[in-house]
Nucleic acid binder design. Structure first.
Ligand SMILES: [Mn+2]
Ligand SMILES: [Mn+2]
Ligand SMILES: [Mn+2]
Ligand SMILES: [Mn+2]
Lengths: 217, 217
DNA sequence: TTAATAAGTTAGATTAATCTAACAAATTTA
DNA sequence: TAAATTTGTTAGATTAATCTAACTTATTAA
């Protein structure tokens, strides 16, 4: 079974490959906060195990087995986050660090039980999809709030970024997933947007709008 | 913060010292299934950190700091076991292996939340005491069922041994903690005991009775 | 009280995961 | 295209946790 380090690398590789098909070692080492030689040597190890395609100086690519293994780690991570929020009462900004550790528990039944108790959730507390038991990830195609126009009525469905700072920013404004939002104005100059929701009116910078994924109601 | 290995050694040392004040390296290495040199070198490490008193060839002794650190690991372990049984519906025979891993999560708030949700339990699913947040362990002085006499009416309060086999043996007979038991006969020859409980009559070997801790009702 | 056995230690090796320093290859910029 | 920059690799060292082999000390049995 994969070690904690291996599981973390697999997750990072899957994450990077979702933004750009081919992955480079630098991005991996930056994301995981390890040196490039460290990442390089782990890549050789993962190649040995059949999880990545790799040739010297060429970009990295997850194999099918690698993608599946990675998705199953993501599944454990997101089930844990959902469990922590729904069953233990944690805030969505607290759960990532805990899940980062709990995801490595070697006891499939533990995660299966979370899945059951949560009644097979399909998204985590930040709106990201929870891969199924075969490692398939149902990609939702939400739209960024920054693509909306004045007058649009949308529901906040997911976050592109789930950093603690951002989550706390949203908490302060009562911007939770599921909230229905009316786009009032879009400022052409800087892309900032004024929205109305739950009797509130807020102006959000383009940077924030980019991170907010919405769908039409 | 202590590594997983260090936490496991501390727990083992506390466990061994509960049976015999002074601990020897052999017992430790046997319990943890590592070689004696491995145990020896970890002892030197723990001594460096102020967790054990140790001089070459002399028996091992936990320091106050070591005993406290160990008790806090045991606290995490037992809170986890209790949480798994009470909140997640696991059987008492399934939880030890999972807790053995979860206990190493570095997130005090995670265990504090379990403690709250369980309303500050004082015993784990096997009747063992859960140390408090300062590492104090309230020792209950239960009596072994093998010390009982015909006619005694007692309640099953704890298990001295919680191996999977033993737990399954008890499950098959409906012998759960809290069950009220009437001692029918005690066989002087082999120490076996016939008990009545919940419309059932069972004969238990001395070996089993030794592991069953009871209290008068 | 010696001899046998058990317990404990030292030395040295191994593995996984990490690092820095040095260098090579690829890409970008001028 | 040549120079500068970025990216990737190799070599070699380190640390934690483990092992085996060989040896020493302590305990137990004859
Ligand atoms: Mn997360
Ligand atoms: Mn992790
Ligand atoms: Mn246990
Ligand atoms: Mn453990």
């Amino acid at each position: 079974m994969a070690s904690q380090a291996e599981e973390n690398y697999l997750k990072a590789l899957l994450h990077l490959s979702s933004e750009k098909e081919a992955i480079n070692v630098s991005a991996l080492s930056t994301l995981l906060k390890v040196s490039k030689p460290t990442a390089n040597s782990m890549i050789k190890n993962l190649k040995e195990q059949g999880y990545v395609h790799y040739e010297k100086y060429k970009p990295l690519l997850l194999t099918d087995a690698g993608r599946k293994a990675a998705a199953l780690v993501v599944r454990k991570h997101r089930l844990t986050e959902m469990y922590l929020v729904e069953k233990m009462g944690f805030g969505w900004e607290e759960v990532h660090e805990i899940a980062e550790q709990v995801e490595h528990v070697k006891a499939p039944v533990f995660f299966d039980r979370m899945d059951e108790l949560l009644e097979h959730p399909t998204e985590d507390p930040h709106g990201s999809p929870i891969p199924d038991k075969d490692g398939n990830i149902l990609q939702r195609h939400y739209m960024s709030l920054s693509k909306c126009q004045a007058g649009d009525r949308v529901r906040l469905a997911a976050l592109k970024n789930s950093s603690k700072d951002f989550l706390e920013f949203l908490d302060k404004r009562g911007l939770n997933l599921g909230v229905s939002v009316q786009v009032e104005t879009v400022e052409p100059f800087d892309g900032s947007v004024v929205i109305c929701y739950q009797e509130k009116r807020e102006s959000l910078s383009a940077q924030v709008c980019n991170q907010l994924m919405v769908e039409y109601e």
